[in-house]
Design a binder for these strands. Structure first.
Length: 677
DNA sequence: TCAATCCGTATC
DNA sequence: ATACGGATTGAC
């Protein structure tokens, strides 16, 4: 395209135009070789989402390398950008501006990552600039100066294949990775084993093939665990950790070590999906169903999708592992894109704890209020009692807090704040009920419908559960772990650990028993991925418990006939995911279709209804939605068959571009959002 | 007829 | 955001 065209270069003296602008007093001499820089400017507007050409002055020739950060004048303003390429000529018919400054000659946006950013922007109907902001961490000049020479590396340890030998296809997988091949797999991890070891073995095999790996993990706790295992097996200096919470300098230093090719293994949370690992051999992800992988900033890409786009572009291996199977991973298996790597049913049964279901004793309790705690049926109490004799036991509760949702004991009406109608909760045993919205204590409370004065808790939080269990098991240590006070791990002494989802501590030698409370409450949420999300969390809890052979057991309190609970009893994450996927097909929901939500002010969103959508598009709405921090917002849903996904994204980009060009208010456009709020 | 101003559009 | 070009307006 560019070849053959000549650059609109005007040489000559100051004439008020040409190469000069008002403030420049010295003549501009273009670089002798490749005088044109193709620059991606840091402007998020959709209608400006394309590269712009600038002239490289001779004095910036050496510094201006592809992938470096530059500053240019754009529409009269000085803006940052990335130099994508140096070329001979420009197709631009007007005059070219000049590169004002090379911020640093450090290559931070390699061609591969630039391509990836473009692909992600296209997939999610976003702009390149928005995606690059997710991919390249903010510059830290001091980190750039320091750490130029990498530490000498010891030789790679031989690949030990032990963690994969329990999977029929495991050894073959590792051999293929070590041989330089690019197999794509969804791996159903056996419960109770340290999942960081199989991932480490895969990373090591890839290193043996002379290639690098990117591994994404849901949160900082998981990153720390994999970091420790990698260090143990690979020694120091072979990998880096890319997480935001390490601070800007450490984060940029780790990023540079990867960008400079000093290390070939990058692990981290969702942003690590963009790590510029050289000679990429594998992308891996643990527990890909975790919604922490969904980026909350525009264009809201999911790290799994980023890794898959990357693997496709660079012919890298894919390893998606977890104790549960996400619906998306199952779709990859069923489409033939990924192979299914799991253990035989027998191996799976013996590796896991014994799972039994206990019906909630709500009904029994209603008949006989003296029967004890309604939430903890006798089977659960028995499991805790015998388990706590031997080691730590885990109780999983749905919510943090004490008594979370109060209702009238007599008429069951929700208890509301007299002042603002907000829901009432109770923060500890002797406290007056407090409004969750305005914070006012309502003392004393009287039911406005029936005049009742007694309150009943619809939802019992982790602290109240701890209090009840402390009374039931005097002399045993009871501790809690929840957001704000997460316990990472517990030792093997007898104790009762009460945790909210995602905050479960790891027990060094496994829990002797676990009780899953509130399963009905978790499944009652109306969101489309509620069942999948609940099952994922429960499989993660079960995996923390000792195998049945060492008398590990799990009591699920809930409805034994419900499909999610059945999946736990049968230890069948794949079957459950296949079933969910079939339901998504029937309901025409992702990943069976591609779906976009458009949220914004009513009249603006209403106007997109007559937009020129692809023929196959199904346009739903608009309906009012709650939109935090903004006044009345509405939402439109557009969905198309999967194969028309690119057409939908393209249409949305056109929609955005016409809107940003006429300075209309931005709409929130999300493709395949994790939840449809 | 020409300058001052407005508006739309491109931004290299 | 700003800058530029073309259209429009208003004063000679």
């Amino acid at each position: 395209m560019r070849a053959g065209a000549t650059v609109a270069v005007e040489e000559g003296p100051l004439d008020g135009g040409g190469w000069y602008n008002q403030s420049v007093t010295t003549a501009l001499v273009p670089a002798a070789q490749h005088p044109v820089a193709v620059v991606a400017v840091d402007i998020p507007f959709a209608h400006l989402d394309r590269p712009f050409d600038y002239v490289v002055p001779a004095d910036l020739d050496e510094q201006a390398v592809p992938g470096c950060r530059v500053r240019v004048r754009f529409a009269g303003q000085r803006v940052g950008g990335y130099l994508l390429q140096r070329v001979d000529s420009s197709e631009h018919v007007g005059r070219l501006g000049r590169l004002e400054r090379v911020v640093s000659n450090e290559v931070v946006l390699t061609p591969q990552i630039a391509r990836l950013c473009r692909a992600v922007a296209d997939r999610y109907a976003g702009s390149f600039a928005d995606v690059v902001r997710l991919a390249v961490p903010p510059r830290h000049a001091r980190a750039e100066k320091a750490g130029a020479d990498p530490a000498p590396l010891s030789s790679l340890p031989a690949a030990e294949l032990e963690p994969w030998s329990r999977y029929p296809a495991g050894l073959a997988l590792i051999e293929r990775l070590a041989a330089g091949e690019a197999p794509r797999t969804c791996w159903s991890a056996l419960p109770g084993v340290d999942w960081t070891e199989p991932i480490t073995q895969a990373v090591l095999a890839i290193l043996h093939s002379g290639r690098g790996s990117v591994v994404c993990l849901p949160d900082a706790r998981d990153v720390t665990r994999l970091d420790a295992t990698l260090r143990r097996y690979l020694g120091p200096g072979r990998h880096v950790v890319l997480t935001a919470d390490a601070g800007p300098q450490a984060r940029y230093r780790a990023f540079l070590a990867v960008a400079r090719g000093q290390v070939q293994v990058a692990i981290g949370t969702r942003a690590a999906a963009f790590a510029p690992v050289r000679d990429l051999g594998m992308v891996a992800m643990w527990d890909d169903g975790d919604d922490l992988y969904a980026e909350p900033r525009a264009p809201y890409p999911h790290a799994r999708e980023v890794l898959l786009l990357r693997a496709h572009d660079q012919a890298a291996a894919v390893l998606l592992g977890g104790f549960a199977r996400s619906v998306q991973a199952q779709a990859l298996v069923q489409s033939g894109f990924c192979a299914d790597v799991g253990a035989a049913a027998e191996e799976r049964r013996s590796a896991g704890a014994r799972v039994l279901v206990a019906g909630s004793s709500e009904m029994a309790h209603a008949r006989d209020p003296a029967a004890g705690s309604a939430r903890l049926p006798s089977e659960a109490m028995a499991a805790l009692r015998s388990g706590a004799a031997d080691g730590p036991v885990l109780v999983s509760v749905a919510r943090a807090g004490y008594r979370v949702a109060l209702t009238c004991q007599d008429c069951r009406e929700p208890a509301r704040c007299a002042h603002c109608q907000g829901p009432l909760g109770q923060s500890h045993a002797d406290a007056w009920p407090v409004c969750r919205w305005c914070g006012r204590a309502s003392s004393p409370w009287t039911c406005p419908s029936c005049g009742g004065r007694r309150l009943r808790a619809l939802i019992v939080g982790e602290r109240r559960t701890a209090e009840e269990l402390g009374k039931a098991f005097p002399g045993i240590r009871v501790r809690t772990s929840s957001a704000g006070g997460v316990v990472d791990s517990v030792d093997d002494r007898p104790q009762i650990v009460i945790a909210t989802p995602g905050a479960e501590p790891v027990a060094a030698d496994g829990y002797t028993a676990a009780v899953l409370l509130d399963t009905g409450l978790a499944l009652a949420r109306p969101d489309l991925s509620t069942a999948e999300e609940s099952v994922r969390r429960w499989f993660n809890v079960i995996a923390l418990v000792r195998p049945a052979a060492r008398s590990g057991r799990v009591v699920v309190v809930g409805d034994g006939s419900s499909i999610p609970v059945q999946a736990l009893v049968r230890a069948d994450p794949t079957g459950f995911a296949a079933r969910e996927l079939a339901e998504r097909h029937a309901a025409r929901l992702p990943p069976a279709v591609r779906l976009a939500t458009i949220i914004g002010p009513g009249p603006e969103v209403a106007s997109v209804l007559d937009f020129d959508w692809p023929q196959s598009a199904d346009v739903l709405g608009s309906v009012p939605v709650e939109h935090v921090g903004q006044e009345a917002a509405v939402r439109v849903i557009v969905r198309v068959p999967r194969r028309h996904g690119p057409a939908l994204a393209k249409a949305l980009r056109v929609l955005q571009a016409t809107r940003t060009a006429r300075k209309a208010v931005a709409l929130r456009i999300q493709i395949d959002p994790v939840e449809i709020g």
